[in-house]
Simulated assay, not measured.
Amino acid sequence: MLTAQQKEELRHAILEYLYARPMLAFAPAAIGRMCYRRGLVEFEPSEEQAREALEFLRGLQLVERIRDPLGGSVCYQITTAGQLARERGEV
Rank of each mutant, 00 (worst) to 15 (best):
M1Y: 09
M1A: 13
M1N: 09
L2G: 05
T3R: 15
A4R: 14
A4N: 12
Q6H: 08
Q6F: 08
E9V: 04
L10E: 03
H12C: 06
I14A: 02
L15F: 14
L15S: 01
E16R: 07
Y17L: 14
L18S: 02
R21S: 08
A25T: 01
A25W: 02
F26G: 10
A27Y: 00
A29L: 12
I31W: 11
G32H: 00
C35H: 00
Y36I: 02
R37G: 00
G39A: 07
G39L: 07
G39F: 06
L40W: 01
E44G: 04
E44P: 07
P45S: 01
S46D: 15
S46L: 14
E47Y: 09
E47L: 07
E48K: 15
Q49H: 12
A50C: 11
E52Y: 10
E52I: 07
E55G: 01
L57Q: 01
L57S: 01
R58C: 11
G59L: 06
L62K: 00
L62C: 05
L62N: 03
I66G: 04
I66L: 13
D68Q: 05
L70D: 13
L70H: 15
G72L: 06
G72T: 10
S73A: 13
V74F: 11
Y76R: 00
Y76E: 07
Y76P: 12
Q77D: 04
A81D: 11
A85S: 13
A85I: 05
R86W: 15
R86A: 15
R86P: 13
R86L: 11
R88I: 07
R88W: 10
E90N: 06
V91T: 10
